[in-house]
């Protein structure tokens, strides 16, 4: 079943086109990511879907509701984490949970939630005293407080250190395992790759590609690179055998094979098999897999982080 259905969504601010005619669906129980650089239109798109912004054109159906005309009802059954929002500085963690719980008709018990999100010892801390990661965990708590089937997470881990980021990722995955559907935006390709079942890559307000991260990488990313060091030099017959697997580059005694893995051919395994079959001693074998970052580069010709 489709939880979100977006058809021909378009939103402009004056002359700037923030989102240009995008369409996609989000299936029940998946983590769907809108990824792309800052300014690609991700936040505008997600806020239109949440019912916080009015699109110029297009239809959006969320949990069977029209996100424009039923926005109040939608807000009572979805959980939303915003990119830029705050709580009053002097509000304590438990007070925020207690207050927001009172805004919903059948919220989950925040006393349980506070433990699940690792905020138990910050229960009486004021919002302004929390670290970035703790604030984000509190916002996730507020987003799941209404016990929603659908959770929106906008730039969840921006500004967090890697450790806090990984902790947040674990939390998001645990939401999916509870059967919740998640629509998120991120400009971290690594985050999208780690978390998302499917991603839509946004650039200049348009969807440049949409699929599972693996499929996108398979079909669009540059080549995989397998490198190793040969102290004794490259015998010509080995070079010939390796050149069947991919393009060969040399950096001193370092050999780099650039090629593509397919379903029945793993580049790294083939390189190793060829080397050991020829009885060649090698060391420091490394493989570099292509990432969504490479997919983006391939699609747009530029790096995601300028």
């Amino acid at each position: 079943m489709d939880v979100i259905e977006v058809k021909n969504l378009r939103k402009t601010y004056g002359r700037t086109i923030a989102v240009e005619n995008i369409s996609f669906v989000v299936h029940e129980g998946e983590i769907f990511g809108m990824v792309g650089p800052n300014g690609a239109g991700k936040t505008t798109a997600i806020e239109c879907i949440e019912g916080l912004r009015r699109p110029d054109h297009g239809t959006i159906s969320v949990l069977g509701l029209n996100s424009q005309t039923d926005s109040r009802r939608l807000r009572s059954i979805t959980g939303i984490q915003l990119q830029n929002s705050n709580l009053p500085d002097h509000m304590k963690v438990w007070e925020a949970l207690d207050l927001y719980a009172s805004l919903y008709s059948s919220p989950v018990d925040w006393r349980v939630l506070i433990g699940q999100l690792g905020l138990e010892e910050k229960r009486d801390a004021r919002f302004c005293k929390l670290s970035g990661g703790q604030k984000q965990r509190l916002f996730i708590a507020l987003a799941v407080l209404p016990n929603p089937r659908l959770v929106f997470l906008d730039e969840l881990t921006t500004g967090l250190d890697p450790q806090a980021r990984h902790a947040i990722w674990d939390l998001v995955r645990s939401l999916r395992s509870q059967g919740k559907t998640i629509l998120l935006t991120t400009h971290f390709m690594e985050e999208a790759e780690w978390l998302c079942d499917r991603v839509a890559i946004l650039d200049h307000g348009q969807i440049a590609a949409m699929d599972t991260p693996d499929a996108l990488i398979q079909s669009l990313a540059g080549e995989e690179r397998v490198s190793f060091t040969l102290d004794a030099g490259m015998p010509p017959e080995l070079e010939k055998a390796l050149s069947l697997l991919g393009h060969i580059e040399y950096q001193g005694s370092r050999v780099i094979i650039c090629g593509r893995s397919t379903e029945n051919m793993q580049l790294a395994a083939d390189v190793v098999n060829t080397l050991s079959g020829a009885n060649i001693r090698f060391r420091s074998l490394q493989t570099v897999q292509p990432t969504l970052e490479d997919v983006f580069l391939q699609l747009t010709g530029r790096q995601i982080r300028e």
Partner: peptide, 14 residues
Amino acid sequence: YREKGILRRLRTTP
């Protein structure tokens, strides 16, 4: 409240 996004956060609720 408006500038810090406190109103925005409240607006996501019913």
